[in-house]
Simulated assay, not measured.
Amino acid sequence: MRTERIGTSDVRFRRQGEGDFAVVFVHGFLDDQYVWDGLIGELATPGIECVTLDLAGSGDRTQASGPFTYYRFADEVGAVADALGKPFVIVGQSLGSAVAELVAAQRPDRALGLVLVTPVPLAGTRQPDEVMDAFRSLGGDGDAQRAVRTQLSAALAEADLDRLVVSGTRMRPETVREAADCWNNGHPAGEQPSRYTGPVLIVRGEDDGFVTDESVTQGVAPRFAAPETVAVGQAGHWAHLEQPTHVAGHLDRFLARALPAVQASAWTNAFEEKSANAFSDAFAAEVTLEASALTRTVEGRDQVKNVMAAASTIYDSLVFTQETVSGERSYLEWKATAFGGTQIDGVTILTKNADGQIVRAAIHHRPLGAVHRFSAELGRRLNGVLDAEYFHRG
């Protein structure tokens, strides 16, 4: 972890990790850069540098003078992205999602992806004054901030809630008022299709009463050409804090597609689609499958594709982190979660024929406890399709 500054300004940013690519995180209204720490700790993507900063008026910059506008926020975050000197994916939450879009749109050659977490529309929420007065008056009122955060979250831990309230009440009342008007009034660019045309992921909390499914489908997603939208269960407006493992899994999968690291193949694409037909395209007719989660070899395209399709649906997240090719063999390292957060690591060895079809797949999971649980769940999902003798018992 290291901290750097933009010139002689008060804009400081933290850099964590090393890699050829950066992921820049932009926090939301009343928050600070530390709101991302839990999510960053859950990321499994290798070769990335994670970067956070406080927006003007927030966190360690509460003494900054105004204006507190999207123009100023985007200029400062953009300066940080430029200082990194490398391609980046930018992630923003709530108010920060609008800032992230503006930064990405201004740097199409280096912005490899845009992730919007519980995003407010760039055009603004356009709430009436009687609603906005409640938000404008939150400055310095810890009880009111706690009530709002509790109302708009579903699984915010008490310790996280306490820290957010402390961070939010440090902001000056005049800053809070101006920042609230910022996300309510929006930016002129939000009235048109987004100028950012790269890959976009939109993450919404299923229980978010502020950024609802309707607000995303009508006010956010239509402005992008082909965004991917996911909903996180048991999460509200702070999905990245409430369910960091699940949000990190979605971000890891997005990074695997957006960053030029492991090259996409029929195998990795099939895991994305989680369908038997997708795996069928990758396999030769005589393919065989060996796995630590199986007690014997599975033979033939139809049986192997059924096993792999069922297995892919067990994972909560799966990211291919390294790939090495030697002749007809490919070696893939991967990290996954299943069963609500159980970590599973593994190596897959694929052997292909002259036509590029897979003739043998060998999949090695670890640790042992997760292997047994995975095998039992796989047997349950393949009941009637594959004999019970193929799976571990007990």
Rank of each mutant, 00 (worst) to 15 (best):
V99P: 00
E272T: 14
V23I: 14
L368G: 07
K352C: 09
G236M: 08
R15T: 14
A221T: 10
K352H: 15
L43F: 07
A336V: 02
F25N: 10
G198R: 01
G85A: 02
E18S: 14
E286C: 02
A239Q: 04
R110A: 14
G340S: 07
G341M: 03
I40L: 13
R253H: 10
A64T: 10
Y390D: 03
A155P: 03
R223A: 11
D109I: 07
T150G: 15
S137C: 13
V26S: 04
S137E: 15
P199S: 10
G340T: 02
P119I: 09
V232S: 02
R5M: 06
K335I: 01
A111M: 12
H237D: 03
E333F: 04
V203G: 02
E42D: 11
A388R: 13
S153I: 01
R393V: 13
L368T: 14
L122C: 05
F339K: 05
Q33S: 10
E389D: 15
F73P: 00
T229L: 12
A248K: 00
L259K: 09
G66W: 01
A309M: 09
S326V: 13
T150M: 08
R253A: 15
T217F: 12
G346T: 08
F224A: 08
V230P: 07
A123F: 05
I40N: 00
R15A: 14
V216N: 05
A104G: 06
P87G: 07
T295A: 04
A293D: 06
E4F: 12
G346H: 07
H392K: 13
Q151T: 11
T295P: 04
E299T: 15
R360H: 15
A147Y: 04
D133F: 02
R172M: 09
I40G: 00
F25M: 10
A376F: 01
P244R: 04
F135H: 11
T45W: 03
F25V: 11
L116F: 06
R61D: 08
L350V: 03
G205K: 01
D31Q: 15
L382Q: 12
I358K: 02
V232T: 08
G92E: 06
E49W: 07
L30M: 14
A79Q: 15
Q303V: 05
T268I: 01
A264L: 12
I314N: 05
G47M: 09
V200A: 09
